[in-house]
């Protein structure tokens, strides 16, 4: 314990641990609970049965009624602990309930029926993860379809984004040509006009191209990101021109210079853009909501939204779906946090 405390209060500075340090720690611990708590709560809840979800006040961990198979009964029976009356202290299984009295049976003596007042008993509960919430997403709902739609849009849009943006960035960073500054300013200027402002006319273009209710209607309007061009151009400016000239002396065509020299050397910036693009497309909501109206074209986000909008919200499946949707991003976060945070800190974009 002392070593733990020692570790937690360790500082690189010369000063000791003072009040502001304690306050900082309190803030951070509270912040951790506030930031992770709700997510963790959703994850735990997603493993609860419908019965457990309806329970109020809720239990922290997913509990379900314990059941026992009793000779002579087809279905497993729910197990109760008797807290008062004649059979106090025994564990009995319920056969049926009639008013305030339950007909019960001792699993050890399956022939004898016992009558117990329902006030005198407590359900036996056990930790039980309702994995069926997840499996049913695939068997009863079209989850695989939504997942595929989301993955398809994310992967294809990201590949095209990286390709097109890096080509444009290469041209803007490594060639001197008339109109270069104008093109660059034009692209940067579009940072000022987020797509949310042009919803109506973009919808016209998309519908004219016959891409309404098609994943391409989500992909094409999203791939020419000014952020990506800007990010990559700034990085490519740091690649020495000598390297490109050396490749040209080595008989490389311009395309080869781009593909074999500039692209591999821009790998860090491309990684950042890839992560951003995956995040953007995976999390996209408003634009897919407008373009994709048929449920078989829904992305995960749209499916989640339409699920929760139903009259009787089916929380057990909705929570499982929420967890599956946040899972990939959580993995990205866990493994690439450093990349993402430095990328954002350097470029100031998200």
């Amino acid at each position: 314990m002392a070593t733990v405390l020692n570790f937690l209060t360790r500082r690189r500075g010369r000063h000791g641990f003072d009040l502001t340090d304690w306050l900082s720690w309190a803030y951070l611990v509270f912040g951790t609970v506030l930031m992770f708590g709700p997510v963790l709560w959703v994850v735990l809840s997603s493993f609860k049965t419908d019965a457990a979800l309806a329970q109020y006040p809720p239990t922290l961990l997913p509990f379900a009624a314990k059941t026992v198979a009793v000779e002579g009964y087809d279905k497993p029976l729910e197990l109760y602990r008797i807290t008062g009356g004649e059979y106090q202290g025994r564990h009995l299984a319920e056969i049926r309930r009639i008013g305030l009295v339950a007909q019960m049976v001792d699993p050890a003596e399956p022939d004898k029926r016992l009558k117990v007042n329902i006030k005198d008993r407590q359900p036996e509960q056990a930790l039980a993860f309702a994995v069926s919430n997840y499996t049913e997403l695939f068997s009863r709902f079209n989850f695989a379809r939504y997942l595929w739609n989301s993955v398809f849009i994310t992967v294809v849009a990201t590949v095209i984004t990286v390709l097109f943006n890096s080509m444009a960035a290469f041209a803007l960073a490594k060639y001197k040509f008339r109109g270069r500054t104008a093109v660059f300013l034009l692209i940067i200027a579009t940072l000022m006009i987020p797509p949310t402002i042009n919803l109506v006319p973009i919808f016209l273009v998309v519908s004219k191209l016959g891409m309404v209710n098609s994943p391409w209607g989500v992909i094409w309007p999203a791939v020419a990101t000014p952020t990506g061009v800007f990010l990559l151009r700034q990085y490519m400016l740091t690649i020495p021109d000598d390297l490109l000239d050396a490749a040209r002396m080595d008989h490389a065509s311009e395309w080869r210079v781009y593909w074999r020299i500039v692209m591999p050397l821009s790998a860090p910036a491309i990684a950042v853009l890839t992560i951003f693009s995956v995040m953007w497309r995976w999390n996209d909501f408003l634009w897919p909501l407008i373009v994709l109206t048929r449920s078989e074209q829904f992305t995960l986000q749209l499916a989640l939204n339409s699920f929760q909008g139903e009259l009787q919200t089916n929380w057990s499946h909705l929570l499982a779906m929420t967890v599956l949707t946040l899972l990939p991003i959580t993995f990205v976060f866990a493994f690439l946090q450093k990349y993402i945070t430095t990328g954002i800190a350097q470029s100031g974009v998200k």
């Binding site: 000598d242 390297l243 050396a246």
Partner: peptide
């Protein structure tokens, strides 16, 4: 080249 311009990757 003066900077050698070796392909670093």
């Amino acid at each position: 080249f003066q900077t050698y311009a070796l392909y670093p990757h």
